[in-house]
């Protein structure tokens, strides 16, 4: 069964805040390392709505930035693996996850895109 990964987005980056993301990427990854993406624009910015979407879309892994503890605990309780406090371009985050190199708090591709996106 392919993995389903959700990443809240802020432009090309993993959204710094789970509760403030207005769009999310849903990635379906096969065992051979290939993956496809779908970008979903959220009707409403809300941590609750995002949690609901994660459950209804059968997501098994979430890569996100800052997330409040109640939502983190809730997703864990629902057996969803959460990699939080991840900083950097979301595609590189997915690559690192599929290569088993991602960990909570990881800073991926920090010196390139993060700099260019400084606001």
């Amino acid at each position: 069964m392919p993995r389903k990964i959700l990443i809240p987005l802020y432009g090309h980056e993993v959204a710094p805040r789970f509760d403030l993301a207005s769009e999310a990427a849903i990635v379906s990854a096969d065992h051979d390392g290939t993956w496809g993406k779908k970008i979903v624009v959220l009707a409403q910015v809300s941590a609750e709505k995002l949690c609901h979407m994660i459950l209804t879309k059968d997501v098994d892994t979430v890569i996100c930035g800052g997330i409040e503890d109640p939502y983190y605990q809730y997703l864990n309780w629902k057996r969803i693996r959460v990699y939080d406090s991840v900083i950097g371009p979301w595609k590189q985050g997915v690559e690192q996850l599929l290569n088993n190199k991602l960990y909570p708090g990881a800073i991926v591709g920090q010196q390139e895109e993060s700099k260019s996106n400084g606001r």
């Binding site: 710094p16 930035g65 800052g66 900083i87 800073i107 920090q110 010196q111 993060s114 996106n117 606001r119």
Partner: peptide
Amino acid sequence: KNMACHNIVR
């Protein structure tokens, strides 16, 4: 250091 501010101070 050298990180975009919004990624550290969320």
